[in-house]
């Protein structure tokens, strides 16, 4: 395997990870765009969703990597798992907003952000206490299919990740730019009070932002399980913090930024791991977080001077 092939392989791996980070980063950005709130509960919405995805797959008798499906059965089971996981995650996100954040609407300062940290711990401990601290062998019905180009390998699961990520991001793009509610969402993000005075029901827009962001985290969670074949109560932090870094790198609040930031973090993780050392990956990624915050706090696509109402 030449060095060139190694880097190409790591790029392919990085794009897969990056697609997952991007989906998760979008949740941070959608909520921040509208409420200027960092939703720390998003970390463990992802983690809980990975378990929901696991249970959804187990409903079909899929356990571990022993029961392989193909054709229509595979497509059906995966579609079901994605829909259930995304819907359940979306509902969790909406519940968090309704129960813990809406009552705080209008309260100044960090109360809402601290609340999301509290909710994050509730979700974390709920899974820890019910499921346990062990790591779960993730049910994976995907057959191992590989395409080899020289020494570079592309796996079926990676293609699946890209397809899911691209479909969801295109759908989000169409929603935000070409539907009445999507435009109302952008308007609310740019000037919430003005949007309200146009007749936009801002509370409803906030609910939609939480639902969409959390549903995308659900998709990312299922992708995570299928990619790594495991999940545990801790993955919200390991994966979530990288996705958060991706959102900050892209410019939190910017949808394009979250997508690009996700891919970049994925590539930095795999290429950085290859060129420097895998165990330094976290140091590299979080140095980027600090560096971005210090040097370009608005990120690659963010606005240094957001329109305030």
């Amino acid at each position: 395997m030449t060095e060139y092939e190694v880097l190409l392989q790591q790029t392919i791996n990085g794009l897969s990870l990056g697609a997952m980070y991007a989906l998760l980063a979008l949740g941070f950005t959608l909520v921040y765009g509208i409420l200027e709130l960092i939703n720390f509960a998003h970390f463990n919405v992802f983690m809980v969703a990975s378990f929901i995805g696991m249970w959804a797959l187990q409903l079909f008798g899929v356990s571990g990597q022993t029961r392989i499906l193909t054709g229509a059965a595979l497509a059906g089971v995966l579609a079901f798992a994605f829909v259930v996981t995304m819907a359940a995650a979306g509902v969790i996100g909406v519940a968090i907003e309704r129960l813990s954040l809406r009552p705080l609407r209008g309260v100044r300062g960090t109360a809402a952000m601290i609340t999301t940290i509290g909710v994050n711990y509730i979700l974390f401990n709920a899974i820890l206490l019910t499921v346990g601290a062990g790591s779960e062998n993730y049910p994976n019905p995907l057959p191992v299919v590989r395409w080899q180009f020289g020494h570079v390998i592309v796996e079926l699961k990676e293609v699946l990740i890209w397809v899911v990520a691209v479909v969801l991001m295109v759908a989000l793009h169409l929603f935000v730019n070409h539907t009445r509610l999507g435009k109302a969402m952008r308007a609310t993000a740019q000037d919430g009070e003005a949007a309200r005075m146009m007749g936009v029901d801002v509370d409803r827009i906030i609910v939609i932002a939480f639902f969409l962001g959390s549903a995308l985290a659900g998709a990312a969670a299922l992708i995570f399980g299928l990619y790594y074949n495991y999940t545990s109560f801790i993955v919200g932090y390991t994966v979530g913090l990288r996705a958060f870094t991706a959102a900050v790198l892209g410019g939190i609040g910017s949808i394009t930024g979250a997508m690009v930031g996700g891919l970049l973090i994925g590539l930095i993780e795999t290429l950085g791991g290859q060129l420097i050392a895998v165990r330094w990956t976290d140091v590299i990624i979080f140095s980027i977080l600090v560096l971005v915050l210090v040097v370009v706090p608005s990120g690659l696509f963010g606005r240094s001077n957001p329109q305030k109402s």
Binding site: R180, K183, A184, R186, A194, G199, V200, Q307
Partner: peptide, 18 residues
């Protein structure tokens, strides 16, 4: 107080939101 990163047409659409 227009929506600065929306087109003029989209701003007009927002006026007719209801």
């Amino acid at each position: 107080r227009l929506f600065p990163r929306m087109t003029v047409y989209e701003n007009l659409e927002m006026g007719a939101y209801t």
